[in-house]
Amino acid sequence: MTNPCPCGLPEPYAACCGRFHRGDQHAPTAELLMRSRYCAFAVGEPEYLLATWHPDTRPMRLRLDPAQEWTRLEILGRTGGTLLQNEGTVEFRAHYRYRGQGEAQYENSRFVREDGRWYYVGTV
């Protein structure tokens, strides 16, 4: 049996977030972009994170800490961000282990769709 995607959905990585990371498709909703970005942290895809970060708020570079192991994602809420909208938020808690210690990061992220693609803008 194949393990589910790190984003928390039941599909295997290749069929779930992997299709976005490979560039086969773009995430169709703000929530799926958020899940694929979490997954990019989990599997070590900084290029995908930068490519899906809005140019107005994107850092010049991004280095992922290999000591940080992302373990679980909880979606706490969402507003907008559907197939027919151009803005949305996703509230989540991302769990990780850092040097043996369990931690969690809470965030309410803002997303916008431009030219048919969703981008992470920042926190609300």
Rank of each mutant, 00 (worst) to 15 (best):
Q68N: 01
E87H: 13
T79K: 05
Y96D: 01
F111P: 00
R58A: 13
C7E: 02
A51K: 12
P6H: 07
G44C: 06
L84M: 11
A104S: 14
Q105A: 15
R19E: 13
R35D: 08
L84E: 14
Q68T: 14
W53F: 12
G122P: 09
G80L: 03
D65Y: 07
A104G: 00
Y96R: 06
G44I: 05
G122V: 11
G18M: 08
R58H: 06
W118V: 03
Y119K: 02
Y106H: 15
H95T: 06
R72N: 05
R110F: 15
I75E: 04
C5G: 03
G23V: 08
R22F: 03
N86W: 08
P10V: 11
E47H: 11
T52F: 09
A30L: 07
Y98H: 15
Y98I: 09
V124A: 13
H54V: 10
F92H: 00
P10L: 13
Y106L: 12
E31W: 06
G88W: 02
G18N: 08
A94M: 07
A42L: 09
G88I: 03
R72C: 00
A40M: 05
Q101H: 13
L84G: 01
P55A: 06
L9V: 01
E91H: 14
Q68F: 00
R78F: 01
R110I: 04
R19K: 14
Y119P: 03
G81N: 07
A15K: 13
P46K: 11
G77C: 07
G116A: 12
C17T: 01
R99I: 08
A27Y: 07
N86G: 13
M34P: 07
D24R: 00
R61F: 13
E107S: 12
G100P: 08
G100D: 08
C5F: 06
V90R: 01
R19I: 10
Q105W: 12
R37W: 09
G116S: 10
H54T: 10
L84D: 15
C5A: 09
Y38A: 04
P4E: 02
P12I: 01
P4N: 05
E31D: 09
A67R: 15
L33N: 01
V90G: 00
T79P: 00
N108F: 00
L76F: 10
D56E: 15
W70R: 02
A51Y: 09
R117H: 13
G88L: 02
T79W: 04
D24I: 07
W118D: 05
R61V: 04
Y38T: 03
